[in-house]
Nucleic acid binder design. Structure first.
Length: 381
DNA sequence: CTCTCACCTG
DNA sequence: CAGGTGAGAG
């Protein structure tokens, strides 16, 4: 991108002299035509190259790509009510849809051999860490996934004004890029009906594209990897992290969401998420513990949790609805201990004490385990 | 005073 | 899940 812009400047400087006046001997028409041709080629080539590298990368790391990639349609099927709300803000950006098509299509329709359904992420390290300098292709990959202004996704902590900070022209620009990449990927040399391919844009459009590229450089490209707000993907990630830690410290959260620009609000929201996760968790535990007692279970040792347990299914449905994540065995153990704690407490009628759960919380909070390093990847989804 | 938690509510 | 609240720790 940077290179392209430089080349454009150079071309322009050839056409115009230092005063900004057309050089003698060059008509405005020919200059324009000249520039137009150059821009067409460069834009087309640069975009194609970048997109190629992205897909190439995706294609070459099939099993090294954990489940976090918005694979399949799970990102859509797994949505709870409030997630839907977040998503609405999210997808109100028109290009997000178009872009998601570009990214998801390959894995869905298997247009890229080798890109298959991801595997449990704790088994597969990422190729690059969050502090690794990003290259254009990586940035583009992110853009393809989240769109140019995914950072302003209309979340509580984000000033509403930011949501509309992107010019419409940018949307179109992205639509073009996204669509073109799709066509390119399909190996089609004709353009789908109704689409305006990048390389057939007339000059005014090209100019607009340039302006967009520059603004993208400034606003999106640079800031893109530090999210201004929490996205549905972050929520998804948090839920999976819950399988390892029920009581994450704010510090841990900061470490595991490196692509999030933390502030008081964001931190609180994340902590709140885990609080909500716990709430659901403990409610389930109490419910099933009481049910066990009703069912006539007498000994705590008869309490166990397997992946086939109803309780586990309920939990898995809540934190891993897409069921595309391999829940660690340790979670099963912790859940079992929790259930037994509730069972014992209720059995001994400790629940008559208003704060009877406190003792249980005290036990459970010590059972947190380390979250796999893989979760630290910012673009892990 | 700030942070975190559980609890309750919508 | 987000808001609001009160308790408790630091």
């Amino acid at each position: 991108m940077q290179r392209l812009l430089h080349q454009l400047q150079e071309k322009i400087s050839h056409v115009y002299d230092s005063e900004g006046e057309p050089k003698p001997g060059l008509s405005r028409e020919s200059s324009v035509k000249n520039l137009q041709e150059t821009l067409k080629c460069e834009l087309t080539r640069t975009v194609s190259e970048s997109i190629d590298s992205v897909f190439k990368k995706l294609a070459t790391k099939p099993s090294t790509s954990p489940e976090y990639k918005p694979s399949q349609d799970d990102s859509r099927s797994e949505i709870s009510d409030s997630e839907e709300v977040i998503r609405e803000h999210f997808e109100s950006d028109s290009q997000t849809e178009a872009l998601s098509l570009v990214v998801r299509k390959p894995s869905q329709s298997q247009m890229i051999p080798g890109v298959k359904r991801p595997f449990p992420l704790h088994q597969t390290p990422f190729q690059f860490g969050y502090n690794t300098p990003l290259h254009d292709s990586q940035i583009l990959e992110h853009l393809l996934k989240y769109g140019p202004h995914s950072a302003f996704s209309g979340l509580p902590c984000v000033p509403a004004s930011l949501e509309r900070s992107s010019p419409d022209s940018m949307e179109h620009s992205w639509e073009s890029v996204a669509m073109r990449s799709k066509a390119h990927h399909l190996g089609q040399h004709h353009h789908p009906a109704g689409l305006v391919p990048v390389d057939s844009l007339c000059l005014p459009h090209v100019k607009m594209e340039c302006a967009d590229l520059q603004s993208m450089e400034r606003s999106s490209f640079m800031a893109l990897n530090i999210q201004e707000g929490l996205t549905p993907n972050h929520l998804k990630k948090a839920k999976l992290m819950f399988f390892y830690t029920r009581y994450p410290s704010s510090n841990l959260l900061k470490n595991f969401f490196p692509d999030v620009k933390f502030n008081r609000c964001i931190t609180s929201q994340l902590i709140k998420w885990f609080s909500n996760f716990r709430e659901f968790y403990y409610i389930q535990m109490e419910k099933f513990a009481r049910q066990a007692i009703i069912d006539g279970v007498n000994d705590v040792k008869d309490i166990s949790i397997t992946r086939e347990s109803e309780l586990f299914r309920a939990l898995n449905m809540h934190y891993n609805k897409a069921n595309d994540f391999q829940v660690p065995d340790r979670f099963l153990e912790v859940a079992e201990i929790t259930l037994q704690e509730f069972f014992s407490a209720v059995s001994l009628s400790k629940d008559s004490d208003p704060s009877w759960k406190k003792a249980i919380y005290k036990v459970i909070c010590k059972l947190d385990s380390d979250v796999p390093e893989d979760f630290k990847s910012p673009s892990y989804l």
